[in-house]
């Protein structure tokens, strides 16, 4: 089948500014959007720049906007797109460095701000720190985050203000806040109880829709909001 790939282009080293280039390609219905981008880069225009690494939906490198919505290029099949014209743009709210590559620094800065690591000052036991299956399942959903930034860059609150910590950082805080072995929940809740913290979430659900790991992002944010409001972890 014939597919028209309309790709956002920007090269800081030329005077063309931002624009779109259209490539007409032959594709199989089972090709992924990433395959189309690879086809352009390898056979048509080697200057096309985008991030990719594992190409199997695990590393989270290739988050882009496909036909107006955040998706991983390696997880979307051509046959699942309702149009034979595919519009490819960089994710919103982060500075574009070149073509589809954005500066992820603000995203990772927010991620680091919520202490996304295990904190427990008790002396380590002889064996492992025990946890029941029920306690483990409490935060199972939020362990799946691959830090692709699809959720944060689909959020209008983040588009408006880069200082908003964003859904991804809250999801990663949730992963440790609800871990029965961790001891820094209160500290993380204090960090998120900020004017640029959880209350910037207006329950728009773009994040939940954009998440390639199907994490219930808005639910995790809601649980953190409630924990801050009530002072209890339920």
């Amino acid at each position: 089948m014939e597919v028209k790939l309309k790709v956002f282009r920007y090269n800081p080293e030329d005077d063309e500014g931002k624009h779109f280039d259209t490539f007409t390609l032959e594709a199989e219905p089972t090709d992924r959007v990433l395959d189309l981008l690879e086809q352009v880069k390898n056979y048509v225009d080697g200057t096309l720049t985008f991030r990719r690494s594992c190409a199997h939906g695990v590393c989270g490198s290739d988050a882009i906007r496909i036909n107006g919505v955040n998706r991983l290029a390696c997880k979307v099949l051509v046959q699942d797109l309702k149009s034979k014209t595919v519009k490819i743009e960089p994710i919103l709210g982060l500075e574009v460095e070149k073509d589809l590559v954005v500066d992820m620094e603000p995203f990772f800065r927010h991620y680091k701000s919520v202490l996304p690591y295990f904190v427990n000052d008790d002396p380590p036991p002889m064996k492992e720190r025990l946890q029941s299956p029920e306690e483990r399942s409490r935060f199972d959903d939020t362990t799946k985050c691959i830090l692709c930034a699809s959720c944060t860059t689909s959020c209008p609150s983040f588009w408006i203000n880069e200082e908003y910590v964003g859904p991804s950082a809250i999801v990663n805080a949730h992963r440790f806040i609800y871990d029965s072995r961790d001891q820094a929940a209160a500290e993380r809740l204090e960090i998120l109880n900020d004017q640029f913290g959880v209350y910037r979430c207006h329950t728009i659900f773009n994040c939940t829709d954009a998440c390639p790991r199907e994490i219930e992002v808005t639910k995790a944010v809601g649980e953190v909001k409630k924990a801050i409001a009530t002072g209890r972890l339920e």
Partner: peptide, 25 residues
Amino acid sequence: MTLDRKVGLLAGLRYKGGGPMLAWI
């Protein structure tokens, strides 16, 4: 030089967020 991160009103509205985003707007 990088492109500004600013998301204009039209660029934001073009994001296909579906029903919940429309409800928010």
